[in-house]
Design a protein around this nucleic acid. Structure first.
Length: 187
DNA sequence: CTCTGGATTGAC
DNA sequence: TCAATCCAGAGG
């Protein structure tokens, strides 16, 4: 069952936790790619690490849109990162999907990644494996080719500081499960 | 227009 | 530890 708008129209930290175990799906022309979400990070509007903390700009506009739509951005000149927008329209918050455990379309992911392992254990790798780029920015993830399905709730959820940021680095807003497919050791 | 740095990755 | 690679955002 596809997660509906109401799922995303709630507190961002709560959603970041609840997304663990859910299934990210991208139906591409080449085939279906899916994976179990094992790592997320919450980004709040009143949070200097959040792109939306300094107001709306052309890049972060999607973050202020409807809950359940995608926010995809390009980073470090070569990678994309994908978020799901949370909170009602007008509030710039989202959950970064940092890692998934591959489920469907493994061969296709291997082709896109150019290697057999470490297919989606990091935000840049995940987008490369799933064929996610700016064309998916602002698309509605409650219907269509790019969605998140309900999934089994993980037994245990861990948290830590978020990766690769300076501001609010100590805030425990990174969430992950016990999996070989998270982006970093602390499990 | 110029400049700076980034929610990363993989090689060294 | 660091280069790759380029664009968003800020400042002139």
């Amino acid at each position: 069952m596809i997660l509906k708008r109401d799922f995303y129209n709630r507190g961002t930290i709560e959603i970041a936790r609840d997304l663990l175990g859910k299934i990210l799906v991208h139906k591409t022309p080449e085939g279906v790619i899916s994976g179990r979400i094992v790592e997320t990070e919450a980004y709040l509007q009143d949070d200097l690490a959040c792109h939306a903390s300094r107001g709306m700009t052309p890049r972060n506009r999607a973050m202020f849109g409807l809950p359940g739509q995608a926010y995809v951005y390009f980073i470090y000149g070569m990678y994309h990162c994908v978020n799901v927008v949370t909170q009602p329209e007008g509030i710039g918050e989202a959950v970064l999907i940092r890692a998934v455990e591959p489920v469907e379309g493994v061969e296709l992911m291997q082709k896109k990644r150019g290697r057999e392992d470490h297919l989606a254990d990091g935000p840049g790798k995940l987008c490369q494996a799933f064929g996610i780029d700016k064309r998916l920015n602002a698309v509605d993830m409650t219907r269509g080719k790019f969605v998140i399905l309900d999934g089994e709730k993980p037994e245990k959820i861990y948290s830590s500081g978020r990766i690769g940021i300076k501001n609010n680095a100590e805030k425990p807003w990174r969430f992950f499960v016990d999996s070989e497919h998270v982006s970093r050791k602390p499990r």
